[in-house]
Amino acid sequence: MRPFTYERAESPQAAAAAAAKTPNARFIAGGTNLLDLMKIDIEQPAHLIDVNGLDLARIEGTDDGGVRIGALVRNTDLAADARIRRDYPLLSRALLAGASGQLRNKATTAGNLLQRTRCPYFYDTNQACNKRLPGSGCAALGGFSRSHAVVGGSKACIAVHPSDMAVAMRALDATVETVKPDGSVRRIPIADFHTLPGNTPHIENVLTKGELITAVTLPKPIGGHQLYHKVRDRASYAFALVSVALVVQANGSGRVALGGVAHKPWRVEAADAELPKGAKAVAARLLAGAQTTDDNAFKLTLVERTLAATLAEAKERTA
């Protein structure tokens, strides 16, 4: 960890302005990702802006019948919220499938969206990694890539976004609300929020310099059976090999998003339409153009099988 300066933000806009004017500044929320990365010299901020004191920890209704989740709502509180459990059970289930109780107590909504990949080469500063050090290469290509992306990757990076929460938000058509240093606000559909690696894997989302996430909103509840199925190597907390977020309506229509397969929560709207045809057809659409390695090719089979099991479970509940 390198020496850094620290301040507490007074307001969201002040936080954004401070971040824009101080070189190499970072916001700190729960710190569960940022601090780990600072300790091993991957994140090297010169200045930390602590946003924890801001009034961004509320969950409240929106005018259109949806819900606004403050950027600082802790993962534990969000998962346990009565309205979320009733109206958006998918989100609650995805949150509870992630990390551990202690981590969820600290982790925030915004921090979770912005957590960084778990690619082992990203974590080892001796290794080539375009995400950590643009232009240095990608050690995962041709290396150990069992947990890596099967869709949307590039020659520069095949890392996955590790969040469970974000996968549910993607299926629920969430919108990310931000404030910029000049005080203007933005609403970014989650589909557009995270980016694919392309030639710039160090860029992971569309936030601009200083831009602060203030909330995530969800449109009005869509009902249906909402299931989050996370597959992992052990029962205790672990990152997903793959995960499936599924919403199925009584008439068989629905939505599906995947975790653990791409640089962002993965949804292909055209695949939703295939849901009545079953897992094979949906998986084919979702994973069209997949590029696998020897280590991660199993994910294609795993996605299809997990999807089939999740669809079967949804059907059972409908019956």
Binding site: R118, P120, Y121, Y123, D124, A139, G143, F144, R234, S236
Partner: peptide, 19 residues
């Protein structure tokens, strides 16, 4: 490259309580 890649407890998983 000749090294053990998963050299921390996030990537070298061991069984814990729930297992």
């Amino acid at each position: 490259l000749g090294f053990f890649v998963n050299h921390d407890l996030a990537l070298y998983e061991v069984p814990v309580h729930a297992d």
